[in-house]
Design a protein around this nucleic acid. Sequence first.
DNA 1: CCTACCGATCGGTAGG
DNA 2: CCTACCGATCGGTAGG
Lengths: 190, 190
Amino acid sequence: MDRKTQIIQTAAKLFREKGYKSVTMRDLADELGIKAASLYNHIESKQEILVIIIMDIAKNFTEHINQIFPINELSSIQKLRQVIRMHIDLSIDKTDALACMNNEWFYLEDSYKSSFLNMRNDYENKFRKIILKGMQKEEIAQYDPEIIVFSLLSTLRTLYLWYTKNKDYDRQTLEEDVTKILLSGVNSPS
Amino acid sequence: MDRKTQIIQTAAKLFREKGYKSVTMRDLADELGIKAASLYNHIESKQEILVIIIMDIAKNFTEHINQIFPINELSSIQKLRQVIRMHIDLSIDKTDALACMNNEWFYLEDSYKSSFLNMRNDYENKFRKIILKGMQKEEIAQYDPEIIVFSLLSTLRTLYLWYTKNKDYDRQTLEEDVTKILLSGVNSPS
DNA sequence: CCTACCGATCGGTAGG
DNA sequence: CCTACCGATCGGTAGG
């Protein structure tokens, strides 16, 4: 792993723990055992670090949903399952970057912020279309689709928080249980 | 409304829009049409403002769940309904403070941070007990209770975000629809 | 990768 | 509520 990657991963950890604005270049340098000025041999600015962290993880989501979305062989429920799995996998494998994306995107400067928001909107739109098609085909219950989308996404987006406190779950159990609860609700089936 | 209340409400709005760390006392003063130094005639510090905003809204949650929790006449589902309603009401009526509580509690200093986290834990524990009792009585489905609690809370906690973009919903429709989806899931009942 | 250092900005105080 | 101002800290640069 080269130095730049090291810097970015360490930064992701710190940004997650303390927030982008609160982490100083001196904090970051300390964590790496060097002086703040030395960071600038590898990166251009604090902002550049944030951009790389967030855009990289955001692309993961975009590419994955773009891949699943057009597959005609999959039912809406199957697509939803795959989307849930992706959220769980990224929550486990790229926790720090995911936390940064969720909480620090706000501090992206103008052009990157709007490009991030575009990616986010595209993602939500595809997610929404999967739900709507599932409702048309009566695979998914006929509730207000906006509230369904919001409810699912808010759970999926904060999974990383919960996983951090419950690391004993293995990936597969988590996938099964989260999928079950999101699809079936909490009412007793009786 | 006295000046201190004005300062706190304006700060809540700005903290929500830009984040606690990014809002300067000069920003806050500008918004109120005064000079930064004048703020200190009404408040002690920037931190005091944050403490007041967050502790005030946190107490709303604590008091409300403490009131509902011990009522023996209510079933678990009825308690859950009331909790959902509280989240919706506060999301609508105290949006800025709620956003601060969710995103900026992190910047509370030591003793306030731990006191906030205690309140939060108490709240989650009572919420969890309502769910567990509901499962015992078979009012609530027998899934992993931790995942149920997490899934419900993550949706309820981010309701304010969604409401901000969908203000055309009236309170009652929102309560009915959110309750239905959280309790029944998105699977088609067929 | 370091030392030395910069201009800007921050939260907050003194004194009226 | 203001003017004037402070010490500390920030992101970043120069030069080696």
